[in-house]
Nucleic acid binder design. Sequence first.
DNA 1: GATCGAGAAGGCAGAGAAGG
DNA 2: CCTTCTCTGCCTTCTCGATC
Length: 514
Amino acid sequence: MSPAKRARSSTATIKRSSSATPPPSSTPTADEDKPKPTLPASALKKLSLHASSRAAQTPFPHWQHPTPQEAQEVCDLLASVHGMPTRPNVLVDKEDAPAGCGQVPSVLDALVRTILSQNTTSKNSTAAKVQMDQIYGRANYRAVLVGGQAKLQETIRCGGLAGNKSKAIMGILDRLEARNVGELGLKPGEGELSLDYLHGKSDEEALNELISFDSVGIKTASCVLLFCLGRDSFAVDTHVHRLSLSLGWLPPNGSVYTLSSSDSSSPSKPTRQTSTAAPPSRDQAFYHLDHLLPSQLKYPLHSLLVRHGRGCVRCAANGVTTMDFVETCPIDHLVKRVKGKYKGGGGGAKGKKTEEAEEVPVKDEAGQTVGFAHAEGAEKIEFEPLPDAAEERVAELGARKGEAVKMEDEEGMPRDESAEEHVKPKKGRGRKVKAEPKEEDEGDAEPAAKRSRRSTTASTKSSAPTRARSTRLGFTSSKAAAATRLKAGKASGDRNEPEAAGQANGGTMHGLDV
DNA sequence: GATCGAGAAGGCAGAGAAGG
DNA sequence: CCTTCTCTGCCTTCTCGATC
């Protein structure tokens, strides 16, 4: 076989196999037989972690939710409002496809789009992708590779985290180039940089290949599998994660059951129990839900949960939707919204946190946690009446300001950002506040600089360093900066005109994968 | 009204702490 | 010492409450 034949066109439309598992090595590639080129330690660590998690099937073997019936019910209810998403058999390379949506035929393009969508809004990531296409040409990754990381970083700066993302993308392109040269026998600079060979690999092989790249985690890889490769993988993003918690599909405590790697062969017998207030992580949620959910529901459920998590005024984070909102929540009777989450907005209102509704774990005869319920007195959560129209919603949201104390939350995250949370001794593993002064609770007499980094940033997160950096770079708040620019009557200064890029982006605000 | 301060979204890697 | 787990930094934009 000519090595050149292996490099498929990245821009052509590619008909997908409808089967979740492609024919086993119908094109037995040399890279399957050869030992893999040495991967960096970080990649090996990721792969090892993934392998043990997969072997364990689910991190919560005693938590049998969602059942297929529960999943089907939620799917049907959400579809009644949002419509039932159907996966296209043929992906077409649309110019205005939003970043973050892996629904493009080229696997490499899908992966890059998904990377660009990490840690930023769809608007920003799409702007970055548009910028890339303008600078390098449409999905011209050879030009990207030739141009170097610095140029790429500058190009995608408007998307945020440009340093990390450009490094990640260049790493992928470097490896593909090395593959072209080392395994396909091409000359340097020849052939197309493509990941389309993943179409010929099994789900697990493709997933492993993807997560072996730097900056590509389970979620990113899962998105590519789900949307580009047409496989049944249940990607867990923030909306899916939040709603899964609210629906009781995940245990309230993320680390109740932990399998040691040596016991991964007997997943039904967790060897150790840890206890932490932290809810399941997104990765844990992925392994649990990907294991339990029926394959045919993964695509529609992911799409519906994302759409609903963004569009339902009752289920969106902080009650603020980022797209057309849903008047009535079809799963309102199924979700458990608990008090306690910070009501978004307004920095000045620091500390506006609502009272936490106490959760009591429900245990089976063996003492294993199999569910949770609100403590007495906390189970009655009164929902506010739904707005009747969009205008009313705006008014309602306005009226909610300042009523944070009464505002219930949909998330049910036991983790609190209060200082008390962080000075609490934890039973489980994990980093503690180093040498936390005992008198810390007492007062603020100690200069903030003397506090541990963790406790200091617990309340401010990364905002402070970010702001400090922004200030050094000449930013104030974006609003102020925008106003200043408006006054000055010129476009944004030496920045990369993110607003302009956003305008170029036009209406593609969301990479909604439906 | 202008400005400032601060939370939130978004996913990953890596540092560091603690248990076995 | 190894493994496991938690937490933070990374970056930008938007939003909103408080203050001037």
